[in-house]
């Protein structure tokens, strides 16, 4: 199971690198919001896989908080972008 979790961890890390690439390149602010949201999700998935690989379950509810924070953050920044566009 450890090897499976490590292989999956490599795949998720590659996806995270691609998301960071979009975060750096993304032409609009909304692209960056989408990339950041995906990055938070990938972080949560990676942490779950990490607990599985090392078979310690101390992270637990921290990941729940992290995913909820990612949700609130992307909603807030999207609304901020909307308001900024309205000002123009």
């Amino acid at each position: 199971m450890t090897t499976v979790a490590n292989i999956a961890l490599v795949l998720v890390s590659l996806a995270g690198l691609l998301a960071v690439g979009r975060l750096a390149a993304g032409p609009g602010a909304l692209d960056r919001v989408v990339a950041l949201d995906a990055l938070v999700t990938l972080t949560v998935v990676g942490a779950v896989l990490g607990t599985l690989a090392r078979s310690d379950t101390t992270t637990g509810y921290v990941l729940v908080v992290l995913s909820l924070l990612g949700f609130v953050g992307s909603i807030a920044s999207a609304r901020l972008i909307e308001r900024r566009e309205d000002m123009r």
Partner: peptide, 24 residues
């Protein structure tokens, strides 16, 4: 787990390759 990680990788590839915000 491997299927889920594969989906994550696919969505990362789509995030880089797709042309506009909505498709990303």
């Amino acid at each position: 787990i491997l299927a889920g990680a594969g989906f994550c990788l696919l969505s990362g590839i789509g995030l880089v390759r797709f042309p506009d915000t909505v498709s990303r």
